[in-house]
């Protein structure tokens, strides 16, 4: 009976701890956003709603806390008598929870933001043309990698907010898991294998990016331009990637020695 509840305890603990970190991150982003709104009101510039302006940084935030979860948190839990398996399950649920909580929170903040600015008739500062991605036909692989992180595929929340949130959830979860994967590889095998896994992660991130871009009908790099499939298939592909990453993490951490 006690046994069954350990991973859910881990999941709850990790979820709240990481959400607490996320509040720090979201708070800083909100402060920056408020400054941008004030500047936009006083000039003619367009800006994006809070939801859009956070998700770029949110991917990197998730990548970082994913890495931390293998270095700091796994040893901590094992030292409290938690098995690697329970930690794996708990951390996975916490990551899913966090990936859902983040865009939900930023959506709520965006709605409040729109509401307030509408009262003052100032909601026109928000751009209606986003969704235009950098054209990178000739920029090569490096630009592609940067773009996949910085300008992950997204949907305009004002056109289809449910889909917009869902796509963000997929992005955030993927980045968290890739961070966790990289961290686990470094933790278990050291620098060289770790670097190999950075490479693996970049490939997976590019693949996820291409899948969603094709599914959403956004610009894609040349090498993917001959593919065409619907969004459900793209999402299925991303889910498959997520499961592959989870499987890799489990293989890396299943019997890993905890460093003292």
């Amino acid at each position: 009976m006690k046994k069954a509840s350990i991973f859910s305890k881990v999941a709850m603990d990790l979820f709240w701890v990481q959400l607490f970190w996320a509040f720090g991150f979201l708070g800083i982003m909100l402060a920056i956003h408020v400054v941008k709104v004030v500047l936009a009101i006083n000039s003619d510039n367009d800006i994006e709603v809070y939801f859009v302006s956070t998700f770029v940084a949110a991917n990197i935030f998730m990548l970082v806390i994913g890495i931390i979860s293998s270095y700091g948190l796994l040893p901590h839990y094992v030292s409290n008598g938690v098995t690697r398996k329970d930690y794996f399950k708990g951390a996975t649920f916490a990551a899913v929870g966090l990936s859902i909580a983040l865009p939900v929170i930023t959506s709520i903040v965006s709605v409040i933001e729109l509401f307030i600015l509408k009262i003052f008739n100032m909601s026109t500062i928000f751009t209606t043309t986003f969704g235009e991605r950098v054209n990178m036909e000739d920029d090569g692989i490096i630009a592609e990698i940067i773009q996949s992180i910085i300008i992950a595929p997204y949907v305009d929340p004002q056109s289809n907010w449910l889909l917009a949130i869902f796509i963000v959830i997929l992005n955030l979860l993927t980045f968290y898991l890739l961070g966790w994967l990289i961290g686990s590889a470094f933790y278990r095998f050291g620098v060289i294998v770790g670097i190999v896994f950075i490479g693996v992660s970049i490939v997976l991130a590019l693949l996820e990016n291409a899948l969603l871009s094709i599914g959403l009908g956004l610009t894609v790099p040349d090498r993917f331009s001959s593919y065409d499939f619907s969004l459900p298939i793209a999402i299925l592909g991303v889910v498959v990637i997520i499961f592959i990453v989870l499987w890799l993490i489990r293989q890396l951490t299943k019997r890993v020695a905890i460093k003292i």
Binding site: I6, S79, G81, V82, T83, K254, I260
Partner: peptide, 16 residues
């Protein structure tokens, strides 16, 4: 090893 029942009952205290 990886036995939740046993691991809960073993405490390892070292200079953390």
């Amino acid at each position: 090893f990886e036995n939740a029942k046993i691991m809960q009952d073993v405490s390892f205290i070292f200079s953390k």
